[in-house]
Amino acid sequence: MIEVHALTKRYGRTVAVDDLSFRVEPARVTGFLGPNGAGKTTTLRTLLGLVRPTSGTATVLGMPYRELDEPTRRVGAVLEATSYHPGRSGRNHLRVAAAAGGLTRSRVDEVLELVQLSADAHRRLRGYSLGMRQRLHLATALLGDPEVLVLDEPANGLDPAGMRWLRDLLRRLADGGRTVLVSSHVLAEVEQIADEVVIIHRGRFVAQSSTAELAARATAATRVRSPQAARLQEALAGQQIGVRGTGDDALAVDAAPERVGELAAAHGVVLHELVAERATLEEAFLELTGGETTR
């Protein structure tokens, strides 16, 4: 379990995290969502005892990370800035981590197998691709078979197969009762991986909800093309639905496609195109916060 309470971190005049509070429960995958610079990395680094908060607290398993006795066995973490010595081999990178965490060498081979890097384990990290390094860092996080997993943008550099593999892995871990927190700035990614999302923006809390709920709100926009665009626009406006013309025969509508289609049918309007617009993350925020991102 992870608990962030009234957390604030300032870097000089920049407020990276601003009075942020949320809880992450075990047995599910929680997404940690926010645009670039929202303060995700800063929050996670504070949680892991790497960055000192200006005020407030962040605890894992009920205590500050620095007070954990066997951190490697209890919390696994992959942080965004991939850190590695280019001259070390993949296996040796893990051997160092295993030694520091008091784990056996056989565990190193197990996690290498798990992240499918066994064949490349002897190679120097200088020659690893981004995705391979990401897997290596995941392997490091999994070394101690931890109860809590904290991943900062783990999808970076993973190919579709890698993404799928990661999704399945996190699902299995969460189903096994572990706490999994995964940050991302890509809504679509989080939607696929997470059961629940915590959204922050400019260092502040915006919302916490189930992924399904978020997805429903985020898709509430439709692009529609019709030779009778003007009539459709009138009909939509008559229902208090936001609508703008975006071309000769095209409209952007602030409603789900089902609603637009039904209205068009009711008014006998011919449609040439009806597309659910996936709202951007920014729009999802606005939707969730009623247009007010600064509480």
């Binding site: 892991l48 005892g49 790497l50 990370y65 620095r66 954990l68 951190p71 490697t72 919390v75 973490a77 942080l79 800035a81 991939t82 850190s83 590695y84 010595h85 280019p86 981590a97 520091a100 965490g101 490091t140």
Partner: peptide, 12 residues
């Protein structure tokens, strides 16, 4: 090389 992150994670 940024490996201090992993070092401090293992030994806070």
């Amino acid at each position: 090389h940024g490996t201090m992150t992993e070092t401090f994670l293992a030994a806070p």
